[in-house]
Design a binder for these strands. Structure first.
Lengths: 123, 123
DNA sequence: TAATTGTTATACTTATAATATAACAGAGTC
DNA sequence: GACTCTGTTATATTATAAGTATAACAATTA
């Protein structure tokens, strides 16, 4: 697990952590059933507080990317409720896409960006 | 201009304002060259502080959705630098789309969401 | 002159992010 | 049994950002 935190970013540390872990799952650097570093261990590694890592893990658990195994700590366990997530995803995409529309970005150009992202991850 | 603020939302008021103004531009409720309500006027209407509206206007100006005409106040004036905005848009879409990939949402399903958003706005 | 425009400055309150210690219950190891 | 490690919870503190509250400024309009 290679995590890189930008402390000058305006994005919260726990969100950077969250997004990078999800990306690691998407690229199979983290596989279903695999354990993540302990909150204390990862916190030491990247030089942040334990609670910051815990907040990232908690939100990942909340959104169905992790489960907690008392024996093995935080484990990758993606629960897939596509319908629910499609709605959530649309809400998140909406403001970004609408800004694009105003800026003259065509439907096909927007879909091109989606293609780019899928391509770069090898999907 | 119909603006509706959800004070219980976790989305900042000035961001709700910003997104709704951009959406109004996209749907031609606000047209190029049209004036927006004054910061004080709009602030009174929706029941927030003047500075909250000013923050929304400032960020819209910064991102090239408005210009300030000393005679007419804040005016819709979309400056279009597509290339720059495509890059910005990709960065914003990335974490959302990657989450979708992990949740098993296919490339075509993601593009379907883009279509939905364009369709709903009539583009 | 009076009123309006966006903008800037200052001060205050509130909410959230992040840090710092500390403790807990459950599980594994010696 | 003693010890260590797991996520989790509690409490307190600091820092930053959001939002409110007044006030003033220069430019413009009536």
């Amino acid at each position: 697990m290679y995590i890189e935190i930008d402390f000058n970013s305006d994005e919260a540390i726990y969100m950077q952590l969250r997004n990078q872990i999800i990306a690691a799952i998407a690229t199979s650097q983290l596989k279903e059933g695999e354990s993540l570093p302990s909150v204390r261990n990862l916190a030491d590694n990247i030089g942040v507080n334990m609670h910051t890592v815990n907040k990232a893990y908690s939100s990942l658990r909340q959104d169905g990317f992790l489960k907690v195994d008392r024996r093995r700590g935080a484990v990758v366990a993606v629960d897939i409720d596509k319908l629910h997530f499609l709605n959530k995803m649309k809400v998140l995409l909406q403001p970004v896409v609408i800004s694009g529309i105003v800026k003259g970005i065509s439907r096909e150009e927007a879909k091109g960006l989606i293609d780019d992202i899928y391509d770069e991850l090898g999907f």
